[in-house]
Every structure is written in structure tokens, then in C-alpha cells.
Design a protein around this nucleic acid. Structure first.
Length: 653
DNA sequence: CTAAGGATGATAAAACGA
DNA sequence: TCGTTTTATCATCCTTAG
């Protein structure tokens, strides 16, 4: 019964409620949408769709149900700027089921056929940027279609001229900035796009079916949710479609004109110049918007110093805050991820976790290594206390034996973030040779290079001219784990680094958990999602909070083994249940677990960050990324726990 | 297992303009 | 001089190919 009243519906309802109040504070009008169209189009991520994305697409389909599916899909691609004939032909050839195939074929066709077709695509591209079609056609004719940069510059000049002139003077040629204003007004007024009840009534359990639906519409799930993200939760389907089409057209244009900037500039300046073009538009847009909004509500500003609500031995502690009603426990929850995530990610995380403000903390205030992380939790924040004794707080305290080898020009006192990989032997060898070539003080250039590499790879000095990456047990110590926590039992060295690099910093987390000690003298029941090597468990244990029942969900076998062997070595008296797959933790399973020991006191999770971190060069796809989308499983499970626990409580009462 | 491999966003510093 | 814009610097729970 409880399961059918599940999270996607709740979330959609919540968002509609939020915004029907007339407050636009969750909206993102003020940020670089145009730029982001570009970014998202290029990265083309795949992953889970947010529930709201599904819901809106679902409603759109219902709304256009008068059309046959075939004509709908044709309309869709025509809307993207392809000719109707071409689309019809391709749909007939490829079948209407696989829109990816269709899109590919269309792009191929238009690239290989007449220049006029690419011409129209180019025009669409600029129209998509907000210029009027007439102006674009004219400018493209003037400049030739080969040079998109000069087209863009000319367009910007023209539109700037027209902005200063009166709009009435030239009704035919359209006006870039007034187009913008018009579309913005439209955006603000168009809030009645779908009815709330429609969403509430729609079935939510058939998630896979919905994914199929949205992809049938021709959008990837990621595109749909990104569009939702960017356009706001209750924007019209037209806005969403526009957004996605713009992204796809941008992608298509990039595919058609990949080389044109290469002769006179490298890749990065190519990007800069394009951004410059977009920037002008954005500035105009921003100026207008700044009259409406005082601040950019969407931007999550990271505190400096990054001490969250406070850290030991620092002033500026905040000891009380007001949590939103929906966020209050039980259970307490604690969610963690990298602080420097792509734009908008923390806004989304916060929105999905009952609008709780994230607490950003750098673990350099707790140990000798930096670790900038955001934590969303509903724990009390007064009377926190740290784990004692304090771990070493500087590099020299942590590695006293290396002190004699440390050159005077390496002034680091803290290490950088501990990552999952270490420097290659070749690099440390290169550094040694570079230093040996110069006797005495090395030249500044060499110093700079060496320092750069030391910072990048967290190298420490272990001999004359000799730097080395940290050993796994040193990483364990810095992170606050017991020595040899990850050692042995069949785990490779590489895996140790990986598991440790993905873990909590114990002292930081323990400081936040310390408020639980008084509240649960008899011990707590813990649900630990993506538990890794058991950072939450170790932190609670070191605080002296007994662990009664722990349910740990972790995909990697090596990590489960580490947690279990720690559990046995520390003579825990509670029970440890480990679950491999987060999908296994459905309503039934949770209901059963909760019935067994009367509910969870704390739900902890740090979902994978590999699609969020800047270290990832290949798939920094944001929350929609394959792994980081598991965040939505955290939300799903937390919501289920809340529902079930409130349900059982009311039954008991 | 090893090595090679940029991109992004925040922040600080510098240049610019009135 | 101050406020704004441009440029430089820095840090980053990593993936892929071999």
C-alpha cells in the first residue's frame, strides 16, 4: 500500500506546490542557459531521468494524443529543423521506434546532401540563439555560411544597433533583445501548463515504461531531465522541447562545422570566441533580469573558509538553524558528495532532499589533507564535539620522518584531496632527474614544475631529490581509518587506493555525528547506502555510539569484505546485513527490515561522485551521469523509509 | 597494472574605466 | 578612488588505452 504512494509523485507534487506560490526562487533564468545548451549537447549524458522529467513528458504525450504516433515523431524532427520530406522518408526507412537511429540518419543525410540544407540548419542554429530569422538569413548571405564566427559577430552588431533604435522603426526585421524579452515574459506567464491532478493520478510504479516513452519522443532521458532542470519544474512542454531542440541543433551544427576554426585558432580559443558571442547575449539578458531579481538564487556559493556550520578551533560557529518541516526526522539523514560539482548540481540535490541547505566543509580543518565536500543532513548542529585525540593537522605532524628531506621552497602545510589514483613511477623519476641536474637550489622553473606536480599528485619528500606518492596505510591514517583497515583479505593495492579515495574523512563525519551520542545511548540502527569501506560505521564506532543493526548497501565485493572483517574484528554486538545492489532495496525489503528492528535512526549515503568531479575528463555528466544518478536512489530509499516509518508509527499509536 | 591524459568552476589578481 | 571586467591560478572521492 505504501509503495504505490512513492517518491516520484511526491516530488512532482512538491515542486508544483513550491512554484505555484508565485515564487520563482527555484528557477534558473539567470544563468548561462545558452552556454549550457552547448555543454549538455556535447556531453550527451545518459542516465536516469528525474521523476519530474518523466512526468512532464508523459503529460505532453497525453496532450498531443490526437495525433498519430507517426505524425508526432515526424513533427518532432521537423521541429528540429529537418525538412518534412526527409524526415518522412527516414522514418519510413528506419521505423518510428528508434529515434536515435532516425536522428543519426537525418544528420548524415543533411550533411551529405545539398549545401542549402546545411544552410538552413545554420540559420536554425542562430535563430535558436535568439536572433530573428530574417536577420540571420541576411547575415548568412552577406558573410557566406563558411564562417560562423563572423556571422555571429555581425549578428551581434546588428542586434546591438537595433536595441538602441526604436523597435517600431523596423517592424519587419525583428529584434533580438525584444525577442528575448518576449520569450521571457512568456516563460513567466506560462505556469498553467499542466494540471497537478493529472500528475498525481498517473501511475508511478512503471518507471521503465516511462523511460521508454520519453525516449520514444526522441529525447534521451538525460536530455529530458536536463531540460526540466534548466527550464524549471513546471515549464510548458513547448519550452522543454525548445530547449532540447536547441541543444540538438547546436550539436548538429557542431557536427557540420567542426573544422572551420582550426586554421586560425586552437580548440580552446575557438571555444572562448564562441563563448564570447554567447556572453554578449547573456549579459543583455542578465541586465534585464537583474531588475527583476536582486540575486542569482540558483548559485550555491561555497563558503570561504569552508567550515560549514563550524569546525573545532575556529570562530564563526553557527549553532542553530531552522529546517524545513518536511526534512525533520526521524530518521536522521546524511548525504555527502563533492563540493565542486558542476553548476546546478547542489541546487538539485538540495531540492530533492527537502530543501535542506548543504553544509560545505573542507576536511583540512580536521586532518592534514584537504577534502572539500558538501553534506546535506538534518542533524542538530549544536554541541558538536570532535574525536580525540586530534589527528595530525599538518604534513609535518603526519609525516615527521620526511621533514629533513623537505626543501625550503616547498611550503605546503596541507596535502590536497586524496584521490583514487597515484602518481606514476616515471613522474617521480623525472622529478628526481630534474633536481639532480642542478646542484644546490634548483632554478625557479624547475621549482615551479616540481611543486605543480607535487600538488597535483600529493607527493611527499622521502629522500634527497626524491618524492613519492602516499602509501595506502598513510592514506588510511589521514582519512582517520584504523591502520590496515583496507589491507589484506585479497584486495589489491590499486583497489585500496580506489576505495580509500572514495571514502569519508572520519573525523569530519564523526564531528557531525557526535550530536547523536546523547540521543542514542543504547545504540542506533543505521542504513548505510553506498557504504564503501564503512566510513559512517567507523565514525560512529569511534564516537562510542553502539551499532545495533546496520544495513549496508555496497556494490563492490572488496568493500563489503572490508566492512565485514572490520565488523568482526571490532567485536560488534549488533547485526550487519549487507546488500549488494541498491535496487534490491525496494519497499518490500525495507518494510521487512524496518519491521524487524523498528526503524532506522540514521540513513547515511555518499553517492558516487565520478560524474561530478573535475578529475573526470570523460564523463563529467553531472547528476544525470551513469553512476552519480544513484543519488536518486538515495532519495527514493530515504522517502520510502520515511513513509514506512511514519506508517508503522501511526499504526502503533 | 601502468601511464597518459584536459576540463570545469571557484577564487585571486590584475587591468580597465569612469 | 571604486566598481567592473578580464586574466591567471588553483584544485579536483577519475577514465581509457595499452
Amino acid at each position: 500500500m505504501l509503495r504505490s504512494f512513492s517518491w516520484p509523485i511526491l516530488q512532482v507534487k512538491k515542486m508544483v506546490d513550491n512554484n505555484s506560490g508565485g515564487e520563482a526562487d527555484n528557477f534558473d533564468w539567470d544563468t548561462e542557459d545558452d552556454l549550457e545548451i552547448d555543454n549538455y549537447a556535447i556531453s550527451a549524458p545518459s542516465g536516469l531521468s528525474t521523476p519530474c522529467g518523466e512526468a512532464v513528458l508523459g503529460s505532453a504525450e497525453a496532450g498531443s494524443s490526437g495525433n498519430s504516433p507517426n505524425s508526432k515523431i515526424i513533427d518532432h524532427f521537423v521541429g528540429m529543423g529537418f525538412s518534412r520530406e526527409m524526415v518522412a522518408k527516414v522514418v519510413e526507412e528506419k521505423g518510428e521506434e528508434n529515434s536515435d537511429l532516425i536522428l543519426e540518419a537525418l544528420l548524415e543525410y543533411s550533411a551529405s546532401t545539398l549545401p542549402s540544407s546545411s544552410n538552413s540548419k545554420l540559420i536554425d542554429h542562430f535563430v535558436g540563439m535568439g536572433f530573428s530569422e530574417e536577420m540571420v538569413v541576411k547575415v548568412v548571405q552577406e558573410n557566406g555560411e563558411g564562417n560562423t564566427d563572423s556571422i555571429l559577430e555581425t549578428l551581434l552588431t546588428y542586434s546591438a544597433l537595433e536595441t538602441t533604435a526604436s523597435v517600431q522603426q523596423n517592424p519587419d526585421s525583428g529584434n533580438c533583445s525584444s525577442d528575448y524579452e518576449g520569450s521571457l515574459l512568456n516563460d513567466f506567464s506560462d505556469f498553467d501548463s499542466f494540471s497537478e491532478s493529472e500528475e498525481i493520478m498517473s501511475p508511478s510504479s512503471e518507471e521503465e515504461r516511462k523511460l521508454l516513452h520519453s525516449t520514444k519522443m526522441g529525447y534521451s532521458e538525460a536530455e529530458a531531465s536536463v531540460a526540466m532542470e534548466r527550464c524549471g519544474p513546471d515549464s510548458t512542454i513547448e519550452e522543454l522541447t525548445d530547449f532540447i531542440c536547441a541543444a540538438q541543433i547546436a550539436k548538429a551544427a557542431d557536427a557540420l562545422f567542426p573544422l572551420e576554426d582550426k586554421p586560425f585558432s586552437n580548440g580552446s580559443s575557438h571555444k572562448k570566441r564562441r563563448n564570447w558571442g554567447y556572453d554578449l547575449l547573456l549579459r543583455k539578458k542578465k541586465l534585464k533580469l537583474e531588475k527583476r531579481f536582486d540575486e542569482d538564487d540558483d548559485a550555491v556559493h561555497l563558503p570561504n573558509p569552508m567550515i560549514g556550520f563550524g569546525v573545532p578551533n575556529e570562530p564563526d560557529q553557527i549553532t542553530n538553524r531552522v529546517l524545513p518541516e518536511a526534512a525533520l526526522g526521524p530518521p536522521y539523514f546524511y548525504y555527502e558528495n563533492v563540493a565542486l560539482a558542476p553548476k546546478g548540481v547542489w541546487t538539485t540535490i538540495s531540492r530533492f532532499l527537502y530543501d535542506v541547505e548543504p553544509e560545505f566543509v573542507d576536511s583540512k580543518f580536521f586532518c592534514a589533507a584537504a577534502r572539500k565536500r558538501g553534506y546535506v543532513h538534518n542533524l542538530p548542529i549544536d554541541n558538536r564535539f570532535p574525536l580525540l585525540p586530534f589527528p595530525p593537522r599538518t604534513i609535518h605532524e603526519a609525516f615527521p620522518l620526511t621533514r629533513k628531506w623537505w626543501p625550503s621552497w616547498d611550503t605546503r602545510t596541507k596535502l590536497n584531496c586524496l584521490q583514487t589514483c597515484i602518481a606514476s613511477a616515471r613522474l617521480t623519476d623525472k622529478i628526481r632527474k630534474a633536481l639532480e641536474d642542478s646542484d644546490g637550489e634548483p632554478p625557479l622553473g624547475i621549482q615551479k614544475f616540481v611543486l605543480e606536480q607535487c600538488r597535483k599528485w600529493n607527493l611527499v619528500w622521502v629522500g634527497r631529490n626524491k618524492v613519492a606518492p602516499l602509501e595506502p596505510d598513510e592514506v588510511e591514517m589521514l582519512l582517520g581509518f584504523p591502520r590496515n583497515h583496507t589491507r589484506g583479505g585479497g584486495i589489491s593495492r590499486t583497489d585500496r587506493y580506489k576505495s580509500l579515495g572514495n571514502s569519508f574523512q572520519i573525523d569530519t563525519v564523526a564531528y557531525h555525528f557526535s550530536v547523536l551520542k546523547d540521543k542514542f545511548p543504547g545504540g542506533i540502527n543505521l542504513l548505510s547506502l553506498f557504504s564503501g569501506i564503512g566510513g559512517a560505521e567507523v565514525a560512529l564506532h569511534q564516537l562510542g555510539i553502539p551499532l545495533k543493526n546496520v544495513v549496508a548497501v555496497e556494490i563492490a565485493e572488496v568493500n563489503r569484505n572490508i566492512l565485514r572483517s572490520w565488523w568482526e574484528q571490532t567485536n560488534q554486538r549488533g547485526t550487519l546485513t549487507d546488500i549488494q545492489d541498491v535496487q534490491e532495496l525496494n519497499g518490500d525489503r525495507l518494510e521487512q527490515l524496518i519491521k524487524n528492528f523498528g526503524g532506522f535512526d540514521l540513513v547515511v549515503g555518499g553517492s558516487p561522485c565520478n560524474n561530478l568531479t573535475g578529475s573526470n575528463r570523460y564523463h563529467r555528466d553531472g547528476l544525470e551521469g551513469k553512476d552519480s544518478a544513484l543519488f536518486f536512489d538515495f532519495c527514493r530509499i530515504l522517502d520510502l523509509v520515511k513513509c514506512i516509518m511514519n506508517g508503522t508509527k501511526s499504526m502503533i499509536i
